[in-house]
């Protein structure tokens, strides 16, 4: 699948979205979700989804107090490793929700969101 970039999100089969602390962001990484940094309702910096970060962008992010960035990370895991990681995440999530009433719709919706998030 060719990478799909709309105004807000960049995703392809070969990438996965990750929110990383600023300390781990490097030039060359690809913005996964559009980044808007504002101060007192004034937009100070906008970087669209799919944008490749430059050293200049890092300085801009730093100057504007960015704490984290959503990047599209290359998927380097094998299909087997992805399946194993997904199973581990699902097992851990099930243990966390073992005492929860999943027949209750709000709880079930939270469980689905956490399971989906941890499986990506």
């Amino acid at each position: 699948m060719a990478p799909q970039a709309d105004r807000n999100t960049f995703i392809s089969r070969e990438t996965r979205l990750r929110y990383l602390p600023f300390a781990e962001i490097e030039a060359g990484m690809v913005i996964g979700r559009a980044l808007n940094l504002s101060d007192r309702n004034i937009l100070r910096l906008h970087l669209p989804a799919g944008h490749v970060l430059t050293d200049g962008n890092l300085r801009q992010l730093y100057a504007n107090g960015a704490e984290f960035v959503c990047v599209a990370m290359p998927e380097t895991r094998s299909p087997e490793q992805i399946a194993a990681d997904t199973a581990d995440s699902a097992g851990r999530t099930l243990r966390i929700f073992a005492d929860a009433d999943l027949s209750e719709p709000t709880m079930a919706a939270l469980f689905d969101c956490v399971l989906s998030y941890r499986s990506k």
Binding site: F68, T106, A109, C113, V114, Y117
Partner: peptide
């Protein structure tokens, strides 16, 4: 608050800030 795709970003930000 609705538990749908919109909270994925919230979860990601919580993880990133917790890590940071």
């Amino acid at each position: 608050l609705t538990w749908d795709e919109s909270v994925t970003g919230l979860f990601g930000r919580i993880d990133a800030v917790s890590q940071s």
